[in-house]
């Protein structure tokens, strides 16, 4: 494995049912320090790929390496050791609803370190300051707006200065202001922490503005990859339809169905 690649995925297949592959023949390299987007329509397999990288699921075939470690061969202790160096932002934040904003961010520090409470306090305030929510440390998750919750979850994800940050649909359901804030934070925090980020998303415009590289997935395969500029100029019909949000194309508007006239029983009426 090249030392400058944090993640290397080699010929990975994944399936629940052998007859229907979720991922097939995935090859991917993600260099250290970069922000990489994995894009594709719903059901294309991008979240599954994120789970394979996080060790939530194990590849049925092929290799997933993170920082030189073969994730699909690690035991549960090995996976947990690796995850201590990862942060993950879930689609809707997944904040612990029984803990305050402060305690949510402090959670990992208290679980994994023996730091004194005073130092934890300072670290939590620094993380919350980075996402602009130091003043909200006493609030409970139920008192936060969607955008604020996502920012708190981001502060929690970077609590232990991870080497890798995984984002699962970080832009879903946000207002334009919150969306802009989260988008800029993802880039800024990645560069400030010297981390590597993977964003799984289908929000094209937001992602293309901040990422260094894009993988486009369809039907469990990588069908295109390149820099944001290359993706915008890509003439592959699938990529073009996705990037420009066209309603019809290789991904049809109509769900497969019988003949329209047959469904309306037009023949029977005229008979």
């Amino acid at each position: 494995m090249a030392a400058d690649n944090l993640i290397e995925i080699d010929s990975v297949d994944y399936w629940y049912d052998r007859r229907r592959a979720i991922l097939s023949g995935i090859d991917m390299t993600i260099p250290r320090g970069k922000v990489v987007a994995i894009m594709g329509i719903s059901g294309s397999g991008k979240t599954t790929l994120l789970r394979l990288i996080g060790g939530v699921m194990k590849a049925r075939k092929g290799e997933v390496r993170v920082d030189g470690q073969l994730v699909n061969k690690l035991d549960s202790n090995g996976i947990y050791r690796l995850r201590r160096r990862m942060g993950m932002l879930f689609q809707f934040g997944a904040l612990f609803t029984d803990l305050s904003v402060f305690d949510n961010v402090a959670f990992q520090m208290r679980e994994h370190t023996n730091l004194p409470e005073r130092m934890i306090r300072d670290l939590v305030f620094m993380k919350l300051h980075a996402v602009g929510l130091r003043g909200a440390h006493r609030l409970m998750p139920s008192e936060l707006s969607g955008g604020m919750a996502r920012r708190v979850a981001l502060a929690r994800a970077i609590a232990l200065d991870p080497m890798l940050i995984l984002y699962d649909e970080p832009f879903t359901g946000l207002d334009p202001i919150s969306l802009g804030v989260i988008r800029n934070l993802i880039r800024r925090l990645n560069d400030a922490l010297g981390a590597t980020s993977i964003i799984v998303t289908h929000d094209v415009q937001e992602a293309l503005e901040i990422v260094d590289y894009v993988y486009y997935m369809s039907d469990g395969r990588i069908v295109a990859h390149g820099t944001p500029q290359e993706m915008l100029a890509n003439h592959e019909p699938l990529v073009h339809q996705f990037v420009y949000g066209e309603p019809d194309g290789p991904v049809p508007f109509q769900y497969p169905s019988r003949n329209y006239a047959e469904d309306l029983k037009l023949g029977a009426r005229h008979a």
Binding site: G54, R83, M86, Q91, F92, A94, F96, T97
Partner: peptide
Amino acid sequence: GLMKATEQLSAMEMMAVDPIAR
């Protein structure tokens, strides 16, 4: 059940904290 539905248990696992123990 709600912790599971809102991915709080998954988040805990991704933070290397075992939900069964915690």
